[in-house]
Computed example of a mutant assay.
Amino acid sequence: MHPSSKPYANEQYSEAQPPPYGNRPIATGFTPATGARYAAPQALVPWSTGLFDCCSDRRNCCLTCCCPCVTFGQIAEIVDEGSMSGTASATIYALINATTGHACMYSCLYRQKMRSKYRLEESPCNDYCVHCCCESCALCQEYRELEKQGYKVVMGWQGNLQQNRGVAMNLTPPTNEPAMKR
C-alpha cells in the first residue's frame, strides 16, 4: 500500500490507532469515550415477502385497500410495542390523510422503525418512495413481515403478550459478538 493512499496518512496516527471520532464506534471494538464494547454490525436481511405479494393474504389485502388506517394502526401498535394503541395510531393516520392526503409521510416512519428493529433491507427503494407510490402494498408487506416474525397482528400488542404468557416478544434479534482472537 502506498503511504499516501493510507486512510491515516497523517504521521500522528497509525492504522492500529485511528484518529478519534467522538463517541462513534471505531474499528477496535470499543467506543472511544467509554471504552465499552459494542456489537459488530450485522448484515441486512431481505423482507420475507415481496412488495407486490399482496394476494398471498387476500383478507388483509382487501382490508388495506378499503381502509388502510386499520392496517396501519395494527402495524404501529406492534412496532411501538403497545406504547400507543392501534386505534389511536389509526385515528392519527386517518386525520392526516383526511386533512393533507399525505398519510404516507407518517406511515413511512413506521417502516423505517420496523426495518431498523429487524435489520431489513431498504428495498425496492427508500421508505418514503415505497409508501408514497405503493401505500397499500407497503402496509400489506409490513403486516406480512410481522406475521412471519411470529406476531398475530390482529390481536395487537397486548393480545400477543397474553398469548405468550406475559413474555414480550423481542423485536430486536440478539446480537452475536465475534469470538476474541489473539
Rank of each mutant, 00 (worst) to 15 (best):
P3A: 09
P3I: 09
P3G: 10
S4H: 11
S4Q: 12
S5D: 14
P7H: 07
Y8R: 14
Y8T: 09
N10D: 15
E11A: 14
E11H: 10
E11Y: 11
Q12T: 15
Y13D: 05
Y13C: 01
E15M: 13
P18M: 01
Y21N: 15
N23W: 00
I26D: 11
A27Q: 10
A27T: 07
T28W: 04
F30T: 13
T31C: 04
P32Y: 04
G35E: 05
Y38C: 00
A39I: 01
A40N: 03
A40T: 03
A40H: 07
L44K: 08
L44P: 00
S48G: 13
T49S: 07
L51I: 10
D53M: 05
C54L: 10
C55F: 09
R58V: 14
R58D: 14
R58Q: 15
N60V: 15
N60S: 09
C61D: 12
C62A: 15
L63S: 09
L63M: 12
T64G: 04
C65V: 12
P68M: 03
C69I: 03
C69E: 13
V70N: 10
F72C: 06
G73K: 02
A76V: 09
E77I: 08
D80F: 10
E81S: 14
E81W: 07
G82Y: 05
G82Q: 03
T87D: 10
T87G: 13
T87F: 09
T87W: 06
A88I: 04
A88E: 12
A90P: 03
L95E: 12
I96G: 05
N97D: 14
H102Y: 07
C104F: 15
C104D: 09
M105L: 13
S107C: 02
Y110S: 01
Q112D: 07
Q112A: 11
Y118M: 07
E122Q: 06
E122D: 02
P124L: 00
P124H: 00
C125V: 06
N126H: 07
Y128G: 00
Y128V: 00
C129I: 02
V130F: 01
V130L: 05
H131A: 01
C132F: 06
C132Y: 04
C132W: 00
E135K: 03
E135H: 12
S136Q: 09
C137I: 02
A138K: 00
L139C: 00
C140L: 11
Q141V: 06
Y143V: 04
L146E: 07
K148A: 15
Y151T: 02
V154M: 07
M155D: 03
M155L: 15
W157T: 02
Q158C: 02
L161T: 02
L161H: 05
Q162S: 05
Q162H: 06
Q163C: 10
Q163N: 13
R165F: 08
V167G: 00
V167M: 05
L171C: 12
P174D: 12
P174C: 10
N176T: 15
E177N: 09
P178T: 13
P178M: 15
